[in-house]
Computed example of a mutant assay.
Amino acid sequence: MTSLRRRLCHPVFLGPSVAALLLAAAGCSSTDATASITVPTPSPEAAAYCRALHKELPKTVAGLDRGDTGTKSELTAEWGDGAIVLRCGVPRPAKMDDPMAKGIEADGVNWLLEQPADAGPRFTTTYRKAYVEVSLSTAYAHDASPLAAFAPAIRKTVPGSL
């Protein structure tokens, strides 16, 4: 969606007055995916697990290099300029109460799958003392394989809550 938005918002595709009006009113906003990362506000216990996780996160995921989220927070991380975004210490998703919710297991870590209508898949760990959320771009609409890269760090730093 970002690339389509980028193309449609480009002034070449719009007349000068229409482009100015749309840029002002609709805000062809920055295509920087990290601009919209919200830093979670976990409990002190969960924040401690998240800080430990932050130190163990991989340098690359799915061939994408780790970047700067711009949040200056140990609760967030991104790879590939926002193609993969991790937030640690997020609230427990309400979807976890749904007995029909979809989940997967990746290298010993269980994840709840949520598929927002306007974005790529979002996964949240289950059975852990801190909830870790990983959002993938639409390029990963049918590919959860990046989750395996996070499993060793999560298993090491965020204990199970069974």
Rank of each mutant, 00 (worst) to 15 (best):
A141K: 13
A52L: 02
A106E: 06
F123D: 12
E45K: 07
S135D: 04
C50H: 05
A19H: 15
P146D: 06
P16A: 03
K55Y: 04
G80H: 05
G80P: 07
I154D: 00
V18R: 01
G70C: 06
A144K: 11
S30I: 13
L22C: 11
D68C: 09
L64N: 11
A139F: 09
G103E: 15
A117G: 15
P152W: 10
E56N: 08
I37M: 01
R155G: 15
Q115G: 07
K129P: 05
K129I: 03
D32E: 12
T69N: 00
E133M: 14
A119Q: 15
E56W: 10
C88V: 04
H142P: 00
V12K: 10
V134H: 00
T125L: 10
D98N: 09
Y140Q: 05
T41Q: 14
G108P: 12
D97T: 10
A77Y: 05
E133S: 15
P16V: 00
L14R: 10
V134C: 02
G80S: 08
A144M: 07
C28D: 13
T124D: 13
K156H: 12
A141I: 10
E114W: 00
C50D: 03
A47S: 06
E56M: 05
T138R: 10
S30Q: 07
Y49G: 06
G160P: 03
R155D: 14
D97S: 09
L112V: 01
K156C: 06
K95R: 09
L23Q: 15
V61P: 06
L112Y: 05
K95H: 05
L64V: 07
T157L: 02
G120K: 09
R155W: 13
R87I: 04
V61M: 10
R122W: 01
E133H: 09
E45C: 03
E114C: 00
T138W: 09
A153H: 02
V109K: 02
A20F: 09
K72A: 11
L57P: 15
A20C: 09
A139I: 13
A144I: 01
A151Q: 04
A19L: 07
T125R: 14
L136D: 02
M96A: 11
A35F: 11
P99Q: 03
A35D: 14
P40D: 00
Y131C: 03
G80L: 07
I37H: 00
P116V: 14
D143M: 08
E105A: 14
T138M: 13
P121F: 02
A24H: 07
R122M: 06
M96R: 08
A62Y: 13
S36E: 09
T157S: 02
G160K: 10
D143G: 15
H54I: 10
R66N: 12
A139Y: 04
E74T: 11
A101L: 00
A47E: 07
V134A: 02
V18I: 02
Q115T: 05
G67N: 00
R92V: 15
G120H: 03
Y140P: 01
V90T: 14
P146L: 08
E45V: 15
G80K: 10
L75E: 06
I104D: 14
V90E: 05
P44M: 13
A20V: 12
F13S: 08
L64W: 12
Y131V: 01
T60V: 11
R128L: 08
P42N: 01
V132P: 07
P44T: 04
T41H: 11
D65P: 08
V12W: 15
P99C: 07
D97E: 15
N110Q: 12
K95I: 13
K59N: 13
A77K: 08
L136F: 02
P93T: 10
T60L: 07
